[in-house]
Simulated scan of single mutants.
Amino acid sequence: MRTERKPTRLDRVFARLDREPERPAHIDMPRMSRHRTVLFGSTLAFYVAIVWAVVITSWLVRLDWRVMFFRPYEQWAQLHAFVDYYVVLGQRGPTAVMVAAWLGWRSWRQHTLRPLLALGVSLLLLNITVGAAKYGMGRLGPHYATEIGSSEMWLGGSIFPSGHTANAVVTWGILAYLASTPRARRWLSALSAVTSLGVGLSTVYLGTHWLSDVLLGWVAGLLILLALPWFEPMIARAEDRIFDWRDRWRERRSARQGRTVPVAPLPAAAPVMLRPLTDREDTAVPEPVSASRSATRSPVYLAPGPHTGRAERTPVTPTGSRRPSHGERHPRGSAPSARP
């Protein structure tokens, strides 16, 4: 007998992704054009310039110290509560969950895994590049500075560049990168720029980052967004491999379900014979059991019933002796009649 397997939620998701995409046909994947390549090279040179300015303790470091001594969180104390909540837009966990939910819906609607894969690649690049720079340069933050006017480099810190700022640029900028229309791309680009700018200034306001940390964070996030077109072929191959794995998994499952499992027929139930009712019986009584079974059972003494004749009682002992007559005995194997 072949049993049909009920489709799971994963089966329904893949069945949805098998359909033709609903996005406009004129929307192509971004490519690394000459303009983008020039912009990427200029941004990389600016990144190196900021790092060099901090290493040699230039005017940028002196500006960092002036902003720190200004203490914005004391100058505008009424903004502290709002900034504490606003800076969450740069934390990796909450922002990644919100953006992944939106891009997951986009993947469902467009029947493609590219939005989620692009987000995963961008976050992976962010962790590698920004994390390596943080722990490689080891700069201390304003609250842990040891010497006034110094760059505080290579002292075991992990704030240069600002992770909140770079994460805000990448996480919200990926929405503009994956936009389906030019108008949506312009609006989302402006929104991500304002959000990341506010997150960077919020960290300076709270005193958790130097101003140069925020500058380098903006540049580091922009570099990742500009470099994403180089990873589009890898994203496409990863999507194809995921669907190939899905197809092989379906084939193996279909092969397992194709085997027939022999099922033994169920034995027919034995009919139950009932003895017809008599004038003294008001319930059906089953046929007596076999002699071999009844011989092994001990005698059953029924409750007192109406008076029956002596000849109707069966012997109780093997010798055939009979008990004294009892006025309320009835024949063995018969049910007592209903009392008035």
Results as ranks from 00 to 15, higher is better:
L44S: 08
A118S: 09
T278P: 10
E74H: 13
V316T: 12
R329F: 07
S189Q: 09
E152A: 11
V285F: 02
P315V: 08
T112E: 09
E147A: 14
T37R: 14
L119K: 01
G320E: 05
A291D: 08
A236T: 14
H143L: 15
S162D: 03
E239G: 04
L197I: 08
V51T: 12
V88P: 04
W59F: 14
Y85F: 13
G163V: 07
P265H: 07
H326W: 09
R241Y: 03
P306Q: 13
R106A: 11
V219C: 02
R275C: 12
A338N: 09
A303M: 09
H307P: 06
T296V: 09
G93S: 09
F160E: 01
R114G: 00
V54F: 04
G258V: 06
R332M: 02
L63W: 13
A335G: 08
P21Y: 04
L175W: 05
Y73M: 10
R275F: 07
F14Y: 13
S42D: 04
W172R: 01
P72Y: 02
P229S: 03
H35I: 10
A269L: 12
T314D: 11
S202N: 07
P21T: 12
W210Y: 02
D240F: 07
R237P: 01
P161L: 11
E251R: 15
V169G: 05
P304M: 01
M1Y: 09
G200F: 04
G217Y: 01
Q91E: 15
F40E: 00
L103E: 01
S33R: 12
G207S: 05
S33E: 09
V219G: 00
A133S: 15
A77N: 10
L39M: 15
V300A: 07
S202W: 04
V61N: 07
T308Y: 00
G309C: 09
L60V: 03
G157P: 00
P324V: 09
T8L: 10
G156M: 07
A132V: 14
R323Q: 00
M137D: 00
A100W: 07
G136P: 03
G120N: 07
I50Q: 00
P7C: 02
M98H: 04
Q75L: 06
R16C: 06
L302P: 04
T314F: 06
H209S: 08
I128M: 12
F243S: 08
Y135Q: 07
E312D: 15
R71V: 12
H35V: 13
T181F: 06
S33H: 08
E20I: 06
V38T: 10
R31Y: 04
H111K: 15
A81T: 12
G207W: 02
W102K: 03
L211N: 05
P7Y: 02
A270C: 06
T296G: 15
V261F: 15
T278W: 09
T283A: 13
R310L: 10
E312P: 01
M29W: 14
P331R: 00
A269S: 08
R9H: 05
G327M: 08
A179Y: 02
L124W: 10
R253Y: 05
H209A: 07
A264E: 13
P7H: 02
